[in-house]
Simulated scan of single mutants.
Amino acid sequence: MAVSSPSSCSSPSILSPLILNTKTNLGSSSSNSSPFPHLFTFSSSRTNNRPLSLIVSSYTKSENGLASKDKKILLEKYGYDVDADDYFSQSSSKSKRRKEQPKMKRGKQVKEDSAEEAKPPRTTHKLLQVLGGTARRTKLLSPKGMDVRPMMEVVKGAAFDILQAAGGCPASLRPGRWLDLYSGTGSVGIEALSRGCSEVHFVEMDPWVVSDVLRLNLEATGFLDASIIHTVRVEKFFERADQFVGNSGPFDYISVTPPYTQVDYGVLMRQISESSLVGEDTFIVVEYPLKTDMLDSCGCLVKITDRRFGRTLLAIYGPTWAQKKRR
């Protein structure tokens, strides 16, 4: 390695990017007087009081010439107060340009931190209606698409006809409290209110469905004051049932209309049967898909009916006295 002026460097060398301007007269120096005899040699001259240009050259293959530590020692030897990290740790201009260039893919610029495409807004339509009771023929909102799947009207109508007959009053439901699990649009609970129930608890986990569908349907039918909405998962509702419902006792009716592929019916029915929300006179309406095995009983309740509507099946559990009355 050698340090020399551009004119005195006789051997081939790689010029370092380090070029120093100094007003100090370094004088001439040889390899014997160099503070780094094994690393550097110095050759300098000063003419016309011009600042001396000191060029550091290196025979190493490093693209940055001298190591940062050696350069710092050299500068400090001649009175320069510099920070090696500031002067010698910078990446080359070529690497900077390479980093600053945006990524390209098939001739198109790709943004690294591109935001996710916004989902289209969710919308509703009025394809449902109340089938019987005081709010009969009132249109109900339901979301477009398959993210919420209301109970088909033919299934809903059959379920309420069976419940009314089993309760001994074919014209209307026995007065009582209804728990609508996985309520979605609220069409089942609203049907119950229209046919004589005094209070309905709706359990729905989707805040948008609650605010833009369920609540609007309750306002349209005039049943908002008789309704209590729980925006929570069904599993959490059962875990904290005493907190949500209080000491009101078991419900008279419970409807279960979950998304088919997102629940384990065995676990769900066991959780319902072991809950304090189910009493000896409770009726439970369960909608379930094909190839699903449903037990003949749910706790102290027996299966009153099990009917099929295309790919949808309907099971109703109730007290033993209701089964005898229906026969």
Rank of each mutant, 00 (worst) to 15 (best):
G167L: 03
E117L: 13
G310I: 06
P17I: 09
Q90N: 11
R97T: 04
Q129F: 06
D242Y: 03
G189A: 05
S10D: 11
D242G: 08
T221K: 04
L140A: 02
R215F: 08
S4I: 05
L52M: 14
F237K: 02
L193S: 08
A166R: 02
S276R: 15
M1K: 13
G299R: 01
L193P: 12
T305V: 14
L313K: 15
I254E: 00
P35Q: 08
L301C: 04
K23F: 14
S92C: 08
E191P: 10
P289R: 02
V232Y: 00
N21E: 15
I304D: 01
Y288R: 00
I162S: 03
G196A: 06
S34Y: 03
I272H: 00
Q101S: 12
L214K: 03
K236R: 15
E100D: 13
V148K: 05
E239Y: 05
S45M: 05
E76L: 10
Q262G: 01
G184S: 02
D242S: 12
A84T: 12
L218M: 08
K103Q: 10
D147A: 14
Q243I: 11
F237A: 04
W321S: 14
L54E: 01
H38G: 13
P17R: 12
K108H: 10
G279L: 02
K72F: 11
L66K: 07
G266K: 01
